[in-house]
Design a binder for these strands. Structure first.
Length: 292
DNA sequence: CACTTGACCTGTCCGC
DNA sequence: TGCGGACAGGTCAAGT
């Protein structure tokens, strides 16, 4: 579920509330979600203060005063929900039906309680997500972290860089290339479809066949769409909620994602859902042609 | 090596 | 209403 913009929205919500707070206790409901020696957690998490909350790609990082960092990956259905001890649970967000139920629930995998009585819930229906506890010096070496490409808003993610990556994976569908976290970090299925539609490129087009003008458009479109995603607070359609339980608004502004059967905002043709690179994919058949 | 497919899990939705 | 199958936003291992 959560792609870069969703994780960034969660990060911003957590940062406002968590920085400076100390962790009083924790509880693990499903061990595989947080594979870590209890004695280490007790030693470097309990009593530690949260120093800052950052993000790399789709990974959320909570840095502690003990020089250790908690890494969170939400995969498809993960949520990090902050419940304020004073009862202002939904402050800053719009409560959803799913969040109206009390936590912990059966999707809750771990809980961190703060000295202030605020509580962080890590929920994950499908159990794909994880929490890792690493010394700061090992964070960059974590297996996924170490292979991540540049952030979309980094100067490293230039037109020249994107061109070189598209050519390097020239035989793969362009959508598969921009979904590859080692090419560029943070793009997932939603924003891949949205970016390709804005750039008027068919997702299945082999990356190596893109014309120079198309690569230019793709680069600009990715930057624009990812910024829009953050501006709207992410995309909600089933599991995603921000850290305060509120929903993201991007879906209301989506160009193609989950809009199959509706009309293209650009040309009025009917949006189709197809399968590309093993993923559900939304396109306008008129704006995004394979053989152009 | 480059690229594709299935597995990991749980829940929901759709057609019969 | 029940049942089987397909599918869901991500990543990794194994396959071709």
């Amino acid at each position: 579920m959560p792609e870069g913009p969703e994780v960034e929205t969660i990060r911003r919500g957590l940062e406002l509330v968590l920085v400076g707070q100390s962790i009083a206790s924790y509880e693990v409901f499903f061990a595989n979600s947080f594979l870590c020696e209890e004695s280490l957690v007790d030693r470097v998490v309990l009593g530690s203060k949260i120093v800052h909350v950052s993000r790399r790609g789709k990974i959320l990082m909570v840095s502690l005063s003990s020089e250790y960092t908690l890494l969170f990956h939400l995969k498809m259905t993960g949520q990090i929900v902050l419940v304020k001890g004073d009862g202002e649970r939904f402050a800053g967000g719009h409560p959803t039906e799913s969040m109206a139920a009390d936590l912990p629930d059966k999707s809750t995998r771990a809980v961190f309680r703060l000295a202030s009585d605020d509580v962080i819930f890590f929920n994950d229906q499908r159990k794909f997500g994880w929490i890792k506890l690493l010394p700061n010096s090992d964070v960059a070496n974590e297996s996924l972290m170490s292979r991540l490409g540049p952030e979309v808003n980094s100067p490293v993610f230039s037109v020249t860089y994107l061109k070189s990556q598209l050519e390097r994976h020239g035989g793969a569908p362009v959508k598969a290339v921009i979904l590859d976290q080692s090419v560029v970090a943070g793009i997932g299925n939603i924003y891949a479809d949205e970016s390709l539609h804005l750039a008027r490129i068919h997702p299945a087009k082999p990356a190596g066949l893109l014309k120079s003008a198309e690569m230019l458009r793709l680069h600009a479109s990715i930057k624009e769409i990812m910024a829009l995603g953050i501006e709207y607070g992410g995309t909600s359609f089933s599991h995603y909620v921000n850290s305060l339980g509120g929903r993201g608004d991007y879906l209301a502004h989506a160009r193609v994602f989950r809009r199959q059967g509706q009309l293209c905002v650009r040309c009025g043709a009917v949006i189709q859902k197809i399968r590309v690179a093993g993923r559900g994919t939304h396109i306008c058949p008129k704006c995004q042609k394979l053989d152009e």
